[in-house]
């Protein structure tokens, strides 16, 4: 009886272990199959895949322009999202009276859940026309539109996570600062911000990760041409694309090596985002250790 009970326990434990290990399996699966699909393209182009010459009929598969576009759009989005997000988080965690906080926090978290296709729809129907009219651009399709949309999308994430990080700062530290005669703002600036900086960085990295990987919203408002605009900082020109957006526009009708090249860009995307998630996680763990250790 005792033995069977033990066996049962072991079986159950192993079932749980297998399901936990499944996540690892999925990651390996995804990486393996994407890489398997992409391998011919890597083999064909070598390091030229990071070049800027995209010309499938001539066998040139450089996605450098899309990588450049991803970087530009992400930087633009972060210029909007980081200051706003951190300011919003300070307001929520330190300033807002409790009733305001309990209503605003869930609302902002809700907004983080708006599906990206809805942002794309709004981008097409409101933003593109607005930019075209207001800024007298050749068209509204541009890096600027992409950066604005991504910035708006990333703000709720950064607010919500930075707010958590600031709330995690122990009370005693704050009270000690206030007891020394510092004003609340001085406490925020000199005590709370430095202590929660790793948590805030984790939030920012997560926001960047989302901006890099966002697909539907961006693909609808960009020009989707695999070229670096002239001059490269020209965010008003419609030429330009991001990795995700290029994959989604070209995948439907591509064939042969071109498809493989799109898979190759997905592999590159995967690696970039994986590095970001890991570093965000390390930062988050550092926060936990810091406050647990005292």
């Amino acid at each position: 009886m005792l033995l069977s009970r033990k066996i049962k326990e072991t079986i159950i434990k192993n079932i749980f272990f297998l399901s936990a290990a499944f996540s690892i399996l999925i990651i390996l699966f995804i990486f393996y199959f994407l890489f398997q699909q992409a391998f011919p393209a890597f083999q064909h182009s070598g390091l030229d895949i990071f070049g800027t010459n995209w010309n499938p009929p001539e066998g040139k598969y450089g996605i450098g322009a899309a990588i450049y576009g991803t970087i530009i759009v992400t930087i633009g989005a972060m210029i909007i999202a980081i200051p706003l997000g951190i300011a919003g988080a300070i307001f929520l965690s330190e300033l807002a009276p409790s009733y305001l906080r309990t209503t605003l926090k869930p609302i902002i978290e809700l907004l983080a859940g708006i599906p990206s296709i809805v942002f794309g729809f709004i981008g097409i129907i409101l933003l593109v026309g607005y930019l075209h009219l207001t800024f007298d651009m050749l068209s509204g399709y541009s890096y600027l539109a992409g950066a604005l949309i991504l910035g708006i999308m990333a703000v709720p994430i950064i607010v919500s996570m930075s707010d958590d990080a600031m709330k995690a700062v122990p009370r005693e530290i704050k009270e000690a600062s206030l007891a020394l005669g510092a004003t609340k703002w001085q406490t925020i600036k000199k005590v709370i911000m430095p202590t929660s900086i790793s948590g805030i960085s984790a939030a920012v990295i997560l926001g960047i990760g989302r901006a890099v990987g966002e697909t539907m919203a961006v693909s609808l408002v960009l020009g989707n041409i695999m070229k670096i605009p002239i001059p490269p900082w020209n965010i008003f020109e419609s030429k330009g694309t991001t990795v995700t957006s290029f994959i989604v526009t070209e995948m439907g009708e591509s064939s042969g090596l071109q498809t493989k090249a799109l898979f190759a860009s997905a592999v590159i995307l995967f690696i970039i985002v994986a590095i970001m998630s890991i570093s965000s996680n390390i930062l988050k763990q550092r926060v936990q250790k810091k406050f647990k250790g005292g």
């Binding site: 050749l138 399709y141 989707n224 041409i225 419609s238 030429k239 526009t249 070209e250 439907g252």
Partner: peptide
Amino acid sequence: QILDVARS
């Protein structure tokens, strides 16, 4: 063929 905007 140089485009300003490519759509799918």
